[in-house]
Design a protein around this nucleic acid. Structure first.
Ligand code: ZN
Ligand code: ZN
Length: 748
DNA sequence: AGCACGCCGACT
DNA sequence: GTCGGCGTGCTC
């Protein structure tokens, strides 16, 4: 709105990274009134007694507080919009969805240097390339300038521009480079080092010939490429080895040929160099990555190159979902069911869901790929909101699905978590020259230490949990609060000197298997071994020799790296999903088991999977053993429908914690009771709680939650707004930390 | 969230 | 007398 009077100073509305769900207005001082200041540009503003970086959300606003209370802004940082209209619309959408401040959402979207006000310009470096006449000239003829001749000879060897820094490290000087330029023999280029001489404007997109597709793949590629420019969501369901990646590559190729950009989302661990290299090898356009392994500068460059349309393909983990693009033509979400797509703190968004929202806003297709789609996605596909495409044929004729055996351990005495019969199966397999993969879902030596005389257990002093016994290095370690203590030599309660480890983790399994198989090496892969630098590379090299060995580890082994020599996979604790307090426990178990099975015998020989279970007759487990994830998921969906849980309802959780349990319960009880007159009138909305979290005490703090479940999103958000309003007015706000999670993935 | 302001106990 | 504990209020 324009000001009522012309002499009133122009006021702008700024989103700031503060936890207050409103924007702040500032006066544009006279000296900045002629500065170009578009929406989405960053400004520096005074805020209380400090200065903050904010983003312009509106101009020429009439402030809701008296004009004399407004402060003038300090500085305009961007001379052009930093975030375009779509990016701002996305931020607003996410802020509404999370019931959070748009300023915090925007702050989350920006790489750290931009948050702090750094210039939004790609650092360009000088590159040199021989011109046509430079290539035609024989350097030997340059008698009077031997150094320049040598430089020209070096440049002639390359078809691509060579970095000036590289030439300098070879002993050439800038004067020599400039001299060649003056003679028209060399040309200078300014470009980002990350582009590796590639250019998105390139006329040819391909750097190699694509693979031949089978009929399934051809059908999928033509379906998706036939609907480019439309906001369609595709579920691409393809079993392990059905050639999903090649389908992605060929759909991406079609988008790149239109001169548009592509975003590829991958799980946290999925960003293996081999995946990225496959993309770089296929395309001649710049392929950038964005993941947690990059430093601030690298992240900023990737972000800017995507925003400026200079990156053709961006492959990234969760946070890449909020990267701006100049002309986005396709989003691929690989392993869409993966839990790492959900941000667990701060702005709790799902990268997969955000991808779908962006697709709708930009009219671009979204491809969700998985061998084990989430129930949410399957439900959307069944309801025809997504187009359901399937890859049923496995690529390569020799590849067969492994046989899966459910190994009954009811009434069996296990030695350190493994049955003697199963050890024999492993031995036979090793004798035949095969590699074995053994999964166990717990790190450490044993999940607890116990006194058999008085019943003392290694409880964590800060959590409702046992401290895990570790041998490397020896310690008791709580996996929930990270507190560490020495291993007691005798029982702290009765002084009995015999304390027994209870249950097995990866370390104990490693030891057990080492003792059982003296002739073959046993390698452990879990967070503790992988974090040691260079260990993983060394291990991969050893395992890739395909000499017989045993790999024991956590889920980490199932994701990421593929081991071609493995033909026996052993799952030691499959029953966890049955006893999980989370209604998604079984779904996760099915996805993990299917993924694990895909690790057995993908090449050459047929694989075998053995699953230790107390429930060999369980119908769901049997379905998984028959490679029937579809029927398995159909059964689970049936169950969710009966219990009216997601995806048959929408859910939100309000979590709260404090150092005293009565503070949390008092706080949440007040809120629920005060809201009841309103929430009980909202049709279909169910408010449950406060209830203690599955592990009430964690790190000395008491956790409780309120559940909101509703059959429609609208009333759910109405209920949330009502509760949050009361929370924000509650006097205990200072002592209780709380958060809202819409569409939670974890119920903890 | 942050950060100032303000009001009480125990220190030089 | 003052240093610092944290309860309270506000941020354009
Ligand atoms: Zn004891
Ligand atoms: Zn703990």
């Amino acid at each position: 709105m324009h000001s009522l009077f012309d002499d009133e100073p122009p006021v702008i509305r700024v989103a700031l990274p503060v936890p207050l769900t409103r924007c702040f207005d500032y006066i544009l001082p006279p000296n900045l009134q002629n500065t170009y200041l578009p929406l989405g540009a960053r400004v520096r503003v005074p805020y209380r007694n400090r200065t903050l970086v904010g983003v312009v959300m509106a101009r020429q606003v009439s402030p809701d507080i008296p004009l004399e209370k407004l402060k003038p802004l300090t500085e305009v940082i961007d001379d052009a919009s930093l975030l375009d209209d779509h990016q701002l619309a996305l931020a607003k959408w996410l802020a509404r969805y999370c019931h959070g401040p748009v300023g915090e959402v925007i702050s989350m979207m920006l790489p750290a240097p931009l948050r702090q006000g750094a210039a939004a310009h790609i650092q360009e470096e000088t590159y040199w390339m021989a011109t046509q006449s430079g290539r035609a000239l024989e350097p030997e003829k340059m008698h009077r300038a031997p150094k320049q001749a040598e430089l020209l000879r070096a440049l002639q060897k390359h078809q691509q521009p060579v970095a000036a820094t590289m030439l300098r490290s070879l002993g050439f000087t800038s004067t020599q480079m400039a001299a060649l330029e003056d003679k028209g023999l060399a040309e200078r280029y300014l470009q980002s080092r990350h582009l590796e001489g590639r250019d998105h404007e390139t006329p040819s997109v391909l750097a190699e010939i694509p693979l031949q597709l089978n009929d399934d793949q051809k059908h999928v590629v033509s379906e998706v490429t036939g609907q480019l420019g439309q906001s369609e969501v595709f579920l691409l369901e393809g079993v392990t080895g059905s050639g999903k990646t090649e389908v992605y590559l060929q759909v991406i190729e079609a988008v790149l040929k239109q001169g548009r950009q592509v975003l590829v989302l991958v799980p946290e661990i999925g960003l293996a160099p081999q995946t990225v290299n496959r993309f770089k090898k296929r395309f001649s356009v710049p392929v950038m990555t964005l993941h947690s392994g990059l430093n601030d500068k690298e992240r900023l460059d990737a972000w800017l190159l995507a925003r400026d349309g200079r990156a053709g393909v961006l492959i990234g983990t969760r946070s890449a979902a909020v990267t701006p693009f100049k002309d986005l033509g396709l989003i691929v979400v690989d392993e869409e069911h993966d839990a790492s797509y959900k941000q667990g703190d701060g702005i709790r968004y799902s990268a997969r869901d955000l991808a779908i929202v962006r697709g709708k806003m930009l009219s671009c297709p979204v491809v969700l790929g998985s061998a084990t789609p989430s129930l949410e996605t399957l439900h959307n596909a069944t309801e025809k909101r997504f187009q359901w495409l399937k890859l049923t044929q496995r690529v390569g004729s020799s590849v067969q699905l492994p046989d899966i055996y459910l190994h009954d351990i009811q009434n069996k005495k296990l030695t350190n978590g493994i049955d003697g019969g199963l050890l024999q199966v492993m031995r036979t397999h090793l004798e035949q020259g095969g590699q074995v993969l053994a999964f166990i879902n717990r790190r450490g030596f044993a999940p607890a230490l116990m006194c058999h005389d008085c019943g003392w257990v290694s409880d964590c002093p800060f959590c409702d949990a046992r401290m895990t016994l570790h041998r490397e290095p020896p310690r008791l370690h709580c996996h929930h609060c990270d507190s560490v203590s020495a291993i007691p030599h005798q029982c702290p309660k009765c002084f009995n000197s015999e304390l027994k480890p209870v249950g097995s983790g990866t370390e104990r399994m490693e030891e057990t298997l080492e003792q059982a198989f003296k002739d073959w090496p046993v390698f452990r892969v879990d967070r503790d071994t992988v974090s040691k630098k260079g260990m993983m590379e060394k291990l991969l090299a050893r395992v890739n020799t395909e000499e017989p060995c045993v790999l024991v580890g956590t889920q980490m082994l199932a994701k990421g790296h593929h081991f071609p020599g493995v033909s026996l996979v052993v799952v030691l604790d499959a029953d966890g999903g049955f006893y999980s307090s989370d209604f998604r426990g079984l779904e996760r178990m099915g996805q993990l088991l299917t993924q694990v099975a895909g690790r057995a015998g993908r090449e050459r020989r047929k694989g075998k999977v053995v699953v230790q279970t107390h429930r060999p007759d369980d119908p769901l487990l049997k379905l998984l053993a028959q490679h029937d994830y579809s029927e398995f998921s159909r059964c689970l969906l049936e169950e969710r429908k009966d219990t009216l849980l997601p995806p048959y309802s929408f859910m939100a959780i309000i979590r709260a914690e404090a150092n005293q349990s009565d503070l949390v319960s008092g706080f949440l009880t007040d809120v629920v009771q005060a809201a009841a007159p309103v929430t009980s009138q909202i049709e279909g909305l169910e408010v449950t709680g406060p209830v203690p979290s599955p592990m009430e005490r964690r790190f000395g703090r008491y956790h409780m939650q309120i559940w909101l479940i509703c059959d429609r999103r609208g009333p759910l958000h109405q209920g949330i707004s009502c509760l949050l309003e009361l929370i924000n007015r509650h006097p205990l706000q200072r002592k209780v930390r709380w958060s809202l999670d819409v569409d939670p993935q974890e119920l903890i």
